[in-house]
Design a protein around this nucleic acid. Structure first.
Lengths: 305, 305
DNA sequence: AGCTCTTATGAATCATTGA
DNA sequence: GTCAATGATTCATAAGAGC
């Protein structure tokens, strides 16, 4: 098996990435400090300055990303003076001018978002996962993220054993095609662009951690084993941890020493386990897979009960 | 009870609205023809021209909306050359320059999105419901859209949906006990800004109707009985139908005669039933409730199983 | 009334073919 | 070459029929 590397660097990604060559990463995935948040750690970028601040860095991301690669940006605009701020949509416009293609916008539906009540606003239960690419053709491994089919399939497809059940679509070319027999016995379906993930209420001592499932899903979708992933705003190291479990190399960049420390410890622990207790590592991987499967099956049973 | 009026007009809302005074409507809710769609009926506004085309009309919407009112815009950008088109986010930017406040973006999660498979894209399962306002203080009646929560749904009210949109009023006096207000506080929660609704796949003879629950939810949330609602792109009349059921006055404007005909028939039929066969009307309403409850119950059982 | 089973179809997207 | 029409692909939901 190919050897994978996990590297965590301390500093501003704008500087650190200077040392990396063009077309180097297969996937960039990150959840950057939102405007005005983490004021003490990142200098508190003001919403008005956010686009400018980010564009300098996204220019570097564009350079180090492979043409076949993908950039996933998890972000959500803050409320400012009772309005949604426009820095995110401005950023999309400006990144396109920079050369990025805005391929898709995934929705992360936060199933257990924070409770709260305001007179003119409901709880914010979703975030954007913006997909940007350098070219029209990029790598996408859809089979890696298939989900169990809805229960309707069990009852319906089961009975369609006869070879030619044909739906004549006279006007609209939608619905089942002519070869429904292809579908008999299928149990998995491709997902949509809406992700239902709970936020992690974990104990990790830092803010704004995204749940492991989020980077995991995108890493599985847009990379294969041995590929190399970048998270330029690593935080406490989730992306690198997940990448490593999935046998992808990764580079994480984080400006705040406390976070770097946490991140390095997680990864170091993994290395220890990897080299000295292989059995346990295997179990860990398996556990990860089971976790995914369990989640998926929970979703399905939820759909079918 | 206050008398309510339902009025359906034929024409381009840009012209028709000239006849309406400033600050007249409490809520504007619409799903305009998307760029490049309905080419044969609406002239098929090109994506490049869409913002300009819409801005003329949103200027009128701004004029006729009360300062305390809300404008809900259901829209989604098409894929163009493998990229999401930017006309929607450009529209947000331009409408703000026009004087609108972009208060919030609700997500409509389309549970039964269109099937299909492509090498570089998953199925599109969501649309935007953009909330715009004229002022920071607008009317919002949050209690009208509360949803049941927690174990209560499993045990006492299997028929109602957690995380779902339910007619709160319909439960009052329907046999759940007189002290409903006591447990309402503990068992009902405010929803989030993510709406889970299936598109209607029924047999209505026209395309692109949004599900009744969508206008219903926003009408309940942003208006009270006797208020007046506008849908400037009425389509087959869903908004006016729902407004009428909820005892709100409404004006619907539709350019295509066929749709106007359908819309007028729905409203007329309701009137006929209302005045000549009251018993049947009652049944119809009840059937409507049952429909909702059935939908909710499927979803709930799904979440709790 | 409450099941199961059948059937219709929905703001889709992409590649190919034809004008 | 540009643009329009056609074909191929694929889920989930709700109405309706039947029992």
């Amino acid at each position: 098996m190919e050897k994978i590397q996990t590297k965590i660097e301390t500093g501003d990604c704008l500087e650190i990435l200077n040392h990396y060559p063009d077309n180097y990463f297969d996937l960039i995935i990150t959840s950057p400090p939102y405007a005005d948040s983490r004021a003490k750690t990142y200098g508190g970028v003001k919403p008005e300055k956010y686009v400018e601040w980010f564009l300098q860095r996204s220019k570097e991301f564009l350079r180090v990303l492979k043409p076949s690669g993908t950039f996933i940006l998890n972000i959500k605009e803050k409320v400012d003076e009772g309005e949604r701020h426009t820095y995110v949509i401005e950023l999309i416009m400006e990144m396109r001018k920079q050369g990025w293609r805005w391929t898709e916008e995934f929705i992360w539906h936060k199933k257990n978002c924070h409770p709260g009540k305001w007179p003119n606003r409901f709880r914010d239960a979703w975030e954007r996962c913006l997909q940007f690419n350098k070219s029209k053709n990029f790598n996408m491994y859809q089979d890696n993220v298939m989900v169990p089919m809805g229960d309707w399939a069990k009852t319906r497809l089961k009975t369609l054993g006869k070879n030619d059940i044909v739906r004549f679509n006279s006007k609209v070319g939608s619905g089942f095609g002519k070869n429904i027999s292809n579908w008999v016995g299928r149990t998995m379906a491709y997902p949509s662009n809406v992700l239902h993930l709970a936020t992690e209420t974990s104990n990790k001592s830092h803010s704004a951690t995204f749940p492991r499932m989020l980077p995991e899903w995108f890493i599985r979708l847009f990379t294969k084993e041995g590929d190399i992933v970048l998270d330029p705003f690593l935080g406490s190291g989730t992306t690198c941890e997940v990448a490593k479990e999935l046998k992808r190399s990764s580079v994480g960049i984080e400006i705040l020493p406390e976070y770097v420390k946490i991140a390095k410890e997680s990864v170091k622990e993994d290395q220890f386990v990897l080299f000295e207790k292989r059995g346990k590592y295997e179990r860990k991987i398996k556990k990860g897979h089971n976790k995914i499967r369990r989640t998926a099956s929970r979703r399905v049973s939820s759909k079918t009960a």
